[in-house]
Amino acid sequence: MDTQFQSTGFDVPGPDIQTVEANGLTMKVASMGSGPLVLLCHGFPELAISWRGQMAALAAAGYRAVAPDMRGYGGTTAPSDPVDYTVLHLAGDMVELVHALGEKHAVIVGHDWGAIVAWTSTLLRPDIFTSVVGMSVPFVPVASTDVLSDLHHAGIDDFYLQYFQTPGVAEAELEKDVEASIRRMHFSASGDGPDTVTFGMLQPGKGILNNTVEPEILPAWLGEQDIAEYASEFRRTGFSGGLNWYRNITRTWELMTPWRGMVIHQPSLFIAGETDDVLKFPNAQANIDNFSHTLPGMRGCHILPNAGHWIQRERATAVNELLIEFLDGLKSAD
C-alpha cells in the first residue's frame, strides 16, 4: 500500500499501487476493487491521490477503480519534448492503459484537464469508452477557432492559459515554494476560498499566485498531510509536465480538426461546483446549456452548491453517490 493512499476516508485498506507500461510510458497506477473498470483521470496540479475519496466507495459498490498519475505527473513518465503532451497523446495513454489492464471497455471519469481527456477519449474511441463523467470542465465540441486565439481577439491577454504558455515562467513562480503554491491554489479555487476575484484572470504583469491567498484555517477536505503529499511529488518532478498540457492547446486544436463539431452519444454525466471559476469562463454556461445537443446521452448535470473547483474532494460523499447512481444505472440498462 502506498503511503499516499493511506487516508481514504473509509475503514478499508488503501489501493494497490503498481507500474504499468502503456503507450511508451511507465505509469504509476492505483487500483482498488473488482468489476467493471472505472478509469479516473486527474487534472492540474493534482495526482492520482485526488481520487482516493472515490476509490473505496467505487470498490465497495462493485467496480474496479483505477487512477493513474497522468502523463508528466508524479510516478508516471514525463517526456522531455513539450510537443508530446497533446490531447491525442493523453487519450492514447488512456486507450493503452485499458489494454494494459487486460480490459476491453471502461467508464472514464475526469476532473479539470482530466475531464478534457475523458471527453476526448470518449469522442475518439466509443468502442472502448462506453460512458463518461466529466467534472468541472464542460464538454465542448471541437470548434472552428482555438481558445487562445479567441482570447486574444477578445482583447484578453492576462488569462492564466496565456500565462502558462512560455516555458519556465510559471515553473519559476510555482516551484519557488511548492508547498505554498499547492496550498494557495487549492484553497483559493475552492468553495472555501475568497470570492473577490476570478481565479483564472491575472493582474497585469502578475503571476497566478497573486490571485491566491493563504488560508487562515485549512478546510476539512484539504489537510496538512494532503498538501505535504502533493508538495513532495511536485518538488521532485517540478510542474513542467502538467504545464506542457496547456502549451499544446493550439496544436491539439489543429490535430482535432477531423472531429470538428462531433458530439458524444454515449451515456454521460457532468458534475461541478457552483462557485467553480471555470463556470465563469466565457461561454461556459452556454456550453452547459447546449448539453442536450452535444451530449445526447446525458444522464444528469449536477451543479453542487457552495463547492468550488476541486469537486471530488470538496464534496466527496455527494460525488460518490452521483457516480455510483450513474454506474448502477448503466448496469440496469444493460
Rank of each mutant, 00 (worst) to 15 (best):
L148T: 09
L161M: 09
G114V: 03
C41G: 00
T252M: 02
V278F: 00
E254V: 08
E314H: 11
P36H: 07
G75M: 08
A172V: 04
G300N: 04
S332H: 12
P305R: 03
D158S: 08
G110S: 07
F164D: 01
I156P: 07
A333D: 06
D11T: 15
M135W: 04
A59P: 14
G238W: 04
Y73G: 09
L37N: 09
F10L: 11
A170R: 09
E314C: 07
A180S: 12
Q162W: 02
P215H: 12
S50T: 00
V107A: 09
P138N: 11
I249W: 02
G24K: 08
G242W: 07
G168V: 06
P68L: 03
A143G: 15
G200E: 04
K280G: 06
A220Q: 05
S190A: 14
D127E: 07
K206G: 09
H302C: 00
V263T: 15
V117K: 01
G33C: 13
W221S: 03
P305D: 05
G24V: 10
R184W: 02
V20Q: 13
L218T: 13
Y63K: 05
G14C: 09
P215Q: 03
P204Q: 07
P215N: 10
T198N: 03
P36V: 02
G75H: 12
W245P: 09
G308M: 05
G297A: 08
E46S: 13
L101A: 10
N320R: 10
V132A: 11
T257Y: 04
G43R: 02
P267I: 07
L40D: 01
G223F: 05
S181Q: 13
Y163G: 00
Y160E: 10
F5I: 14
G207M: 06
T86R: 13
L25T: 12
A30K: 04
P45S: 10
H302S: 00
E254N: 08
Q54M: 07
A318Q: 15
M256E: 04
P15I: 08
K280E: 01
I17K: 06
G205L: 06
V319D: 03
P267R: 11
Q312A: 05
G241Q: 09
W253K: 05
V29E: 07
T145A: 15
M55F: 05
A154G: 14
L47D: 04
T166V: 14
F164N: 14
R315F: 02
Y163E: 01
V133S: 13
G205W: 06
F270P: 00
M55E: 11
P15Y: 03
Q203G: 13
R235F: 06
Q285F: 01
A67S: 01
P45D: 05
N248Y: 02
I288T: 06
D127M: 02
E274M: 02
P296Q: 10
V169A: 12
T86M: 11
P13N: 06
P215F: 10
K331N: 09
Q4P: 02
T250F: 05
K176L: 13
T86W: 12
L25S: 14
N306G: 04
K104G: 03
A56M: 06
A67M: 04
G205N: 13
L25E: 12
G238P: 09
H105K: 07
T19M: 08
L37D: 02
P167I: 00
S31F: 00
I17R: 10
L124E: 04
L97W: 13
Y160N: 10
